[in-house]
């Protein structure tokens, strides 16, 4: 019988949980189909590598890495950089939207102040002419 270590059981369980979470988010229209596919691919790969590490090790060795561990570390670093990059882009887009909203409010308030000042001037004038 094949014996699995604790992490080999924990990682697929965690992966399945996150894939179900993604499906549930997708069904509630909180995630796009593309995001669901990427999420499912990433976590299925994690589960696969945990259960069959030799698959990835042989792939990494064929790709030219000295050993499988180097390959895993290399791909993990690339993945982390990609996620950080995506997050930075996301923050940048949010900042732009926030700036648009704030500037819109500022201009609206300026118009309101101008309107109020003009209205009070008109009232003063009409009182003065009475």
């Amino acid at each position: 019988m094949v014996e699995f270590s604790f992490y080999q059981l924990l990682t697929p369980a965690f992966s399945i949980l996150l894939i179900f979470h993604a499906i549930s988010r997708y069904s509630r229209s909180e995630q796009t189909f593309k995001e669901l596919l990427v999420w499912t691919f990433v976590w299925s790969s994690m589960a696969l590598v945990a259960i069959y590490p030799e698959l990835f090790v042989s792939f990494a060795e064929k790709a030219g890495f000295r050993n499988g561990v180097f390959g895993i570390v290399f791909f993990c670093i690339i993945l982390v950089f990609f996620i950080v990059f995506k997050l930075l882009l996301f923050i940048e887009r949010l900042e732009r939207k926030l700036a648009d909203v704030v500037r819109h409010i500022a201009l609206y308030e300026l118009d309101q102040r101008k309107y109020n000042e003009e209205a009070s001037e008109e009232i003063k004038d009409s009182l003065h002419h009475r």
């Binding site: 926030l98 700036a99 704030v102 500037r103 409010i105 500022a106 201009l107 308030e109 300026l110």
Partner: peptide, 13 residues
Amino acid sequence: IVVQHPVNLGVGA
């Protein structure tokens, strides 16, 4: 004329 940003955005904005 004075315009007021409700929060600090930066010199560019």
